[in-house]
Structure formats: C-alpha cells, structure tokens
Design a protein around this nucleic acid. Sequence first.
DNA 1: TTTCATATCTGAGCACCGTCCAGATGCCAT
DNA 2: ATGGCATCTGGACGGTGCTCAGATATGAAA
Lengths: 209, 209
Amino acid sequence: MSEAKSAEPRPYHHGDLRRALVDAARRLLEAEGPSALSLRAVAREAGVSPAAPYHHFKDKAELLDAVAHEGWETLGAQMAEAKSQAEGRAQLTALGIAYVCFARDNPALYRVMYDAVRDKEALPEDIHDKDDSAYCMVRDTLIEQGADPTAEAHLELATIAAWCAGHGLAEMAGFTQFAPLKEALGGERRFLEAVFEHMGLFQHPPGAC
Amino acid sequence: MSEAKSAEPRPYHHGDLRRALVDAARRLLEAEGPSALSLRAVAREAGVSPAAPYHHFKDKAELLDAVAHEGWETLGAQMAEAKSQAEGRAQLTALGIAYVCFARDNPALYRVMYDAVRDKEALPEDIHDKDDSAYCMVRDTLIEQGADPTAEAHLELATIAAWCAGHGLAEMAGFTQFAPLKEALGGERRFLEAVFEHMGLFQHPPGAC
DNA sequence: TTTCATATCTGAGCACCGTCCAGATGCCAT
DNA sequence: ATGGCATCTGGACGGTGCTCAGATATGAAA
C-alpha cells in the first residue's frame, strides 16, 4: 500500500533499502505509535523479509538509532529557526519553546530519541559536541545573553539546567492534569512561556548569580 | 531459589500471590534491569505458571503500575525525609536533590514509574492530588518560601517548573558527558546543587517575579 | 460432614517478536 | 562468460503477552 515511492533506477537489488527502512519506520511511528514499531513491522512496511534489515543494521537498536538521528537533526533545525526569529533575551525562551513544541508534535519520535539516550546514558555525540548542535546552540545563546564564556563550569551548568528544564517540560507539558491551567492561560504557548518564566534561568542574565 | 519468604499460614492457595508477584518484579528489576522484566520472568521468579498473574492483574501494565506505585510511595517518603532535615530556603533544593538521588539509586524503578506516566500522559492521581503527595509537597514548600498561595496559576506554574527541573535532571544527571564536570565540582551532590542553583526558582523567592 | 460454588492455578496453544542461518538471487568486476 | 559478493528469502529457535479449558483447593452452606 505504501511501498511505492518512485520509479528510480534502484541501483542495487532493492535500491537503497537502508533509507527505505528508516522511512518505513518513521511512517509506522507516526501512524501507529512507538509500541507498534517492531523490526518485522518495519520490514513488512518496506516490503522485504524480516531478515533483510540485518544486512543494513546490526540489530533493532541500530535502526532506531538511525531514526532518532534524523529526529535530532530536525529538532536542531527547528531550534535554529526559532532562535533566528527571536531577539535578545527572548532567544533562550524561543529555543525552549521550539524544543517542547517539537516533542509535542512528534511524541513518538521524541520517545524513540530519548529511549536511546536513556539506554546509552548519554546524549548523542553530535548533539552534544558539534558546533552547530542543539546543545551548543543553547550554550551559545547563554553567552550572547551575558554568561561569562570563560567561566566554563558556570556556563556548562547553566546549559545543563536549561536542557533539563526543556526536557522535563517536553515530557510533562501534555499531562492531562495541566489541561485546565493551560486553558486558563489561553493556550499551549502561553502556558509554556509562563513555565519558562518561572525558571529564573530564562529571565535573568545567567551570569548574575 | 528465592521464593521462600516465610512459613506463614498462606491464607489461600499460594498465599498472597499478588504481593509475591510485585516483590518478584522488584527483585528482577533491580537484578536484571527493566528490559528483563517480562511477565513470564516475574511468574518464574515467583514460582508460578505464566498464566497465574492474570488472576491478580488485568495485564502486564497493571502489574507494572503496582510496582510503580510502590516506587512513588518510596520517593515521597524520601522527599519528606529530606525536607525535614533542611531549613528555610534550602528545603526546595533538598526536595530536588532527594528526587534526583532516588532516580539515581533506583534507575530501573524510576524508568518503570515514568514509562507508565508517559503512557497515561498524566502523573499518578495520588501523586498529584493527595495532600501529602510528592507534588503537593513541592507546592507547599514553595508557599512556605514566599509564594503567594492565593495566586493559584502562579503557584501551579512554579510547581510545574520545579517538577520539570527535577525530572529533567533526574534523567540526565548520570550522562557520561557530565562526568568530568561532576568530578571537577567535587562529586555528584555538589554537581546537583550547582545545577539547581542555576535555576532561579530554587534561589529567589518564587513570588518575586 | 458432606457438598458445592468459587477463587485460584496449570498446561497447552495462539500470534507475534528479535535474531540467526543456509541457500537462492542478482549485480559488478574481471 | 565467469566468478565473487553483497543482498535478500524462507525457515527455524526461543522468547514474549495473552487466552482458555480444565484441574485443584478453599470457605461456606447444607
């Protein structure tokens, strides 16, 4: 039903099966949720046998890593976009809101992303280290807003604090218990802004404490 | 090997199998991690057939709910204990640190607890609502530290912010990337205190903004 | 005390899962 | 044309969550 993509010259047996599997996984993830994301279902969706994926991924976790990787890239792009449309002190909050909104719009994908993170007990290397990564974007923004870049420990602590706040809110913003408050404040966005307001980090110059 | 607990008069067939199953699950969880926590393995550990648990729990999720419930109770008790040993403005930070330390000391249990939360998209009812629950403990502490109890939206936002911070840090404090910083600061506890220091909520009177 | 309804537990079975393997299949360089 | 090799398949293994008919033990009723 959904394996037809394009009549391209498929350079090998199946074509780029690796690509096709990741796409199939993302399709399934969006349509059926994370619990339906079995390796066999992905193979089925891609139109190949259950054993085929093993020629492109060591195991299921490695496939999910590939899916998660694309998620982190999209998240980074959306954060960069959000930052570019904000100014001054509002930039950090803009990053936070973009982060939470990504998680809200792609809940299954966000879960796959963080499941891998929890298993490895580490953020993906390129998210934490690369210069234009999401993590570094937060750190750079803190510097631009007044944090002292030479106080490395200070700076990293502030970055961690901001990241924790974003992740925590990303996982909890959708809780049913908060629905009335969200309504009272006039919508999701106002709610998120308000929560970030209550985290001093997002309001006061980070170098000040 | 580990089903012998006590030679009590076992009031029914097996005795209190429900209790035995939850205990077996917690034992397995601690010994083998969350991925080893299958219903069949729990039944095996408890010394009964794979179908036996279904007379006490609707499905696997309900067993895990029971395990998680005990986790929340332990967490609440540890937070209360920590609060009672701190004074004044340090109480909120004490709560946060107790929260994170619980997650660090019981990683598998904490994961089971939050997996259920994520599935339901809600905190457990009795954690959020009951007067002596963990959530209310945070809110009460905020009031004691100066938050205006009549500004309900304000107060709830601050509670949410604090809870998000705690959960976020609980999930990330163990990341390998932060190990050098932890070392530089002189250990886990100093690290946690430092991160919380960077969240204004934990430093300034919450009514002030 | 015997009987009996009922809660409890078992064993077998279903569909599905992740993973591995021997063998078939098609591509590319020789 | 041939041979090597990456790729893909079908089948199998042990594990999973869950269901169901039947065996078993129990406390209450007779």
